[in-house]
Amino acid sequence: MKTQEKIRILTEEMAADFFFVHDAIVYGALKKCQIPYNHPDYEDYVQIGRMKLVEAYECFPKDLTEEEAFYQFTGYAFQKVKWGVLDEIRVRVRRAEQEVFMPEDFEPLVVDERSLVDAEIVMQDMYQSMLACLTEGEQTYLNDAVILQLSVKDIAKKRGVSRKTVYAWRQRVAEKLAEYKSVLKN
Rank of each mutant, 00 (worst) to 15 (best):
E97C: 11
Y180A: 08
K52H: 12
Y37G: 06
E97S: 07
E136S: 12
D41S: 11
E113R: 10
Q171W: 06
F73W: 04
A178L: 11
E5N: 07
E5T: 15
D41V: 04
I35D: 00
Y180S: 06
I25L: 10
H22A: 06
L177M: 15
A56C: 10
V183I: 11
R94V: 03
D41M: 12
E12S: 12
E99Q: 15
L10P: 00
N186H: 10
V26K: 03
E43L: 13
V21T: 14
V117S: 10
Q149T: 10
R95G: 08
S151P: 01
K181H: 14
Y37N: 14
I155L: 03
M51Q: 10
G84I: 08
E88M: 13
D63K: 06
Y71C: 05
Y57K: 03
E175K: 14
F19W: 04
L116M: 13
M102R: 11
S115K: 09
K181G: 06
I25T: 07
Y37A: 13
E12G: 07
K176S: 01
K157Q: 07
L30S: 03
R170A: 14
A145D: 01
R170G: 15
E175V: 10
N143E: 08
R172E: 06
V161Q: 02
G137F: 01
Y180K: 08
D105L: 07
Q171R: 13
A119D: 12
E107F: 04
L109C: 01
E99G: 04
Q4S: 08
R170N: 14
A24I: 05
Y27L: 15
R159N: 09
V81S: 04
C133H: 11
Q79G: 05
Q79P: 04
V93L: 13
V54I: 15
E13W: 03
V111H: 03
S162H: 01
K82Q: 13
K62F: 14
R114M: 13
S115H: 09
V183L: 10
E67M: 07
K82M: 11
E138D: 04
Q171T: 15
P36F: 01
M102K: 06
D105N: 14
K80N: 11
